[in-house]
Computed example of a mutant assay.
Amino acid sequence: MPRATVYRYVGGKSQLREAVLAGATARVADSIRSTIAALTGPERVAGAILAAVRAVRADPVAMAYLTATSPREVDRFLASNPRLADAATTLTGTDGEPVAGQWIVRVVLSLLFWPAADAATERALVERFVVPVFATT
């Protein structure tokens, strides 16, 4: 099928990209939810962040988007996205201050763009420098 026909059917290149990204986002969110279902408090914060990193790394669409997209677009569509920030606070159990969700998204993005040596190091970083911020939530 010609590209123009596909774009016409879905409403254009931007709408196609958003639909594909929405599907990847839903898969990632489902994976996070299943991982953190029984977690609360600090364990939920760390678990949700680390589950997000693992789920994005495992999703070929999400990883392709991150590796092929300019930093400006990543900021606009992910880091500064209020819906994603809301989802981050809900999944981590840190409902409250809106900027917290944006910060959580940025933590996940930083681990994706600049991974630590291994999963144990990433867990240690999150537990030491991220979880304490939410100790009172």
Rank of each mutant, 00 (worst) to 15 (best):
I32N: 13
G41V: 07
A55W: 01
V61P: 02
R128V: 10
L50G: 00
A51V: 02
P82R: 05
A55H: 03
A29W: 10
D30F: 14
G41Q: 06
T25A: 15
V53I: 02
Y9I: 07
F113V: 13
R123E: 15
P98R: 12
D30C: 11
G101C: 01
F129W: 11
L84E: 10
L91K: 08
R76G: 08
E73W: 07
F77D: 11
E43D: 13
T67I: 03
K13D: 09
V61H: 00
V131G: 02
S110P: 07
R106V: 02
R44Y: 08
A85R: 10
V131T: 03
A100Y: 09
A79L: 13
A29N: 14
A26W: 02
Y9V: 14
S70F: 02
T136V: 14
L84Q: 08
P60K: 03
L78I: 09
K13C: 06
W114G: 01
E73N: 09
R83N: 12
R8Q: 09
A24H: 04
T25G: 15
A22L: 08
V105A: 11
P115Q: 06
L39P: 07
A24E: 11
Y7R: 05
W103H: 09
I32K: 12
L39Q: 14
A88I: 11
T5F: 01
P82C: 03
L16I: 06
T5S: 05
A85W: 08
S80C: 10
S31C: 11
S34I: 11
G96W: 05
A22Y: 05
R17Q: 12
A87C: 13
V28I: 13
T92V: 08
A19C: 13
T35P: 07
A46F: 00
A26P: 01
Y7C: 11
T67F: 00
G96F: 03
M63E: 08
A100K: 07
I49L: 14
V45H: 04
A124L: 08
A64I: 00
P98A: 10
D118M: 03
R44K: 10
A52T: 09
R33M: 15
P132W: 14
D86A: 14
V108N: 09
T69R: 05
G47M: 04
L125D: 00
S31P: 12
T35D: 14
A64P: 00
P82V: 10
T40Q: 07
A58K: 06
L84G: 08
L109G: 01
G96Y: 06
S14W: 07
A124Q: 10
F129R: 02
A119Q: 11
Y9R: 05
F134K: 07
L111D: 04
A62Y: 00
R83A: 09
E97V: 15
A19N: 14
S34P: 13
E97P: 03
V131Q: 06
A85G: 01
R128F: 06
V126I: 01
F129I: 15
T137Q: 06
E18I: 08
W114S: 01
R57G: 10
V126M: 03
R57P: 00
T35W: 04
T92S: 09
F134V: 10
T92H: 09
S80Y: 05
T40I: 02
S70T: 13
L111V: 03
T69Y: 04
A135V: 04
Q102A: 01
V107C: 05
A55L: 03
R33H: 11
V61Y: 02
W103Y: 13
V6T: 08
E43Y: 06
T92Y: 08
T90H: 09
A135Q: 12
V28M: 10
V45N: 05
V10W: 00
